[in-house]
């Protein structure tokens, strides 16, 4: 029995304007991994390599115990993939698509599909060309979710959805958390959605993995301090990621937050006025800036 949902090792790939070198990324079974990155960071490339849609120049990809791309046919029975640029047959109905998927994947659950139709407010007899963007995204998700795949890979699942549709999608994703056999990888630049459901967070920038950590320690270790500068304030503080000064005040960001850090700050001549938690988005931006 494999303990990883997937394991990517030493992945390198080179395009004319993009390079990824020695990427290592893995996900334990039963966990949710959120992949965060700006446009062009390599999120989709990572997902495409994982799906066997693109072959890496070097490295090993193991998904649900199968080697990719060699064993991708077997692996794909248990993988569900949806991306926002996925095309459906525009002259066919959603029902036709459901039957089509069922003909390939025998485990397609029509009962669950029916529930999803209702919850996503979709109509089975409607042709794809009449659907709005949000309805199309939900239709794609329905086709994938109804197979109850062991590994669900979602490339920007909530991009371009209105708040209500996004909430519907998140609710369905949350339902997967009940099953400890199922794993999810999803990419987004909406860090709010990722922050909510993910156990693990990966930050990707310019083809490099900046960080991979469990969410709780991530959010715990970063903090922002608003300080008053004392006359003897030093230039730098050990453990500070960034220090911005404005007159008598300074803002210090750290990725090593503990009760000791306030003491360290004080010794360096920074009198703490306030301490704030940082959102995942702020942590991401600070992380990218530090590494560029």
């Amino acid at each position: 029995m494999q303990q990883y949902a997937f394991d990517m090792r030493n992945i390198s790939i080179r395009y004319p304007h993009f390079a990824m070198e020695n990427l290592n990324l893995s996900l334990a079974k039963g966990q949710v991994l959120g992949l965060v990155g700006v446009n062009g960071a390599g999120k989709s490339t990572t997902i495409r390599i994982l799906m066997g849609l693109v072959k890496a120049d070097a490295g090993q990809v193991d998904v649900l115990g199968y080697q990719l791309p060699a064993q991708q046919v077997q692996a794909k029975y248990d993988i569900g993939f949806a991306s926002d640029d996925m095309r459906l047959y525009k002259n066919q109905t959603l029902q036709w698509h459901m039957d089509f998927i069922h003909s390939i994947f025998p485990n397609f659950d029509h009962g669950y599909a029916k529930d999803l139709l209702q919850r996503f407010e979709l109509i089975a007899d409607q042709k794809m060309k009449g659907l709005s963007h949000g309805q199309r995204v939900k239709a794609c998700l329905l086709l994938v979710l109804a197979r109850r795949p062991k590994l669900l890979v979602l490339d920007e699942p909530t991009t371009g959805l209105d708040p209500v549709a996004r909430d519907e999608v998140i609710t369905e994703l949350a339902d997967i958390l009940r099953d400890d056999e199922r794993s999810v990888l999803f990419s987004s630049h909406n860090t709010h959605d990722i922050e909510k459901l993910s156990d693990q967070i990966a930050f990707l920038d310019r083809g490099k993995l900046l960080a991979l950590q469990d969410k709780e320690s991530f959010v715990q270790s970063w903090a922002r301090f608003r300080c008053q500068l004392l006359p003897q304030a030093q230039e730098s503080v050990l453990g500070a990621v960034s220090i911005r000064r404005s007159g008598q005040l300074a803002e210090v960001i750290t990725d090593q937050c503990s009760s000791d850090f306030a003491v360290v700050l004080h010794q360096a001549g920074f009198k703490v006025i306030e301490q704030h938690r940082m959102s995942l988005e702020e942590i991401f931006v600070a992380n990218v800036k530090r590494n560029r």
Binding site: R178, Q200, K215
Partner: peptide, 17 residues
């Protein structure tokens, strides 16, 4: 833990903590 996570739409690791 998984049931509460699904119900409240919060990650499993958060409920664990």
């Amino acid at each position: 833990i998984r049931e509460l996570a699904a119900q409240t739409q919060v990650s499993v690791i958060t409920v664990k903590r």
